[in-house]
């Protein structure tokens, strides 16, 4: 059971770092709008057709 001395701090440290990351991202406003970004990424490739615009 000596392995616990290594594993426990490791597990707790991992957990704490993820929690810290979550709290940081909340503070940065990452969760203020959870609806739009998931759609926004679908549209990134659709560009306004600038060439066509210049012709008209």
């Amino acid at each position: 059971m000596e392995i616990l001395i290594v594993l426990l701090p490791l597990a707790l440290g991992l957990g704490a770092s993820f929690l810290g990351f979550f709290l940081w991202s909340v503070k940065k406003g990452q969760y203020d709008d959870v609806e739009t970004p998931k759609y926004r990424m679908l549209l990134e490739d659709t560009k306004v057709d600038m060439k066509k615009r210049k012709e008209t």
């Binding site: 957990g15 993820f18 929690l19 979550f22 709290l23 909340v26 503070k27 406003g29 969760y31 203020d32």
Partner: peptide, 18 residues
């Protein structure tokens, strides 16, 4: 207010899981 609520939620979730 909203953010602090979310943080409380995160802390509770992480602790409860562990």
């Amino acid at each position: 207010e909203e953010r602090s609520y979310l943080m409380r939620l995160g802390v509770a979730g992480a602790a409860a899981g562990n």
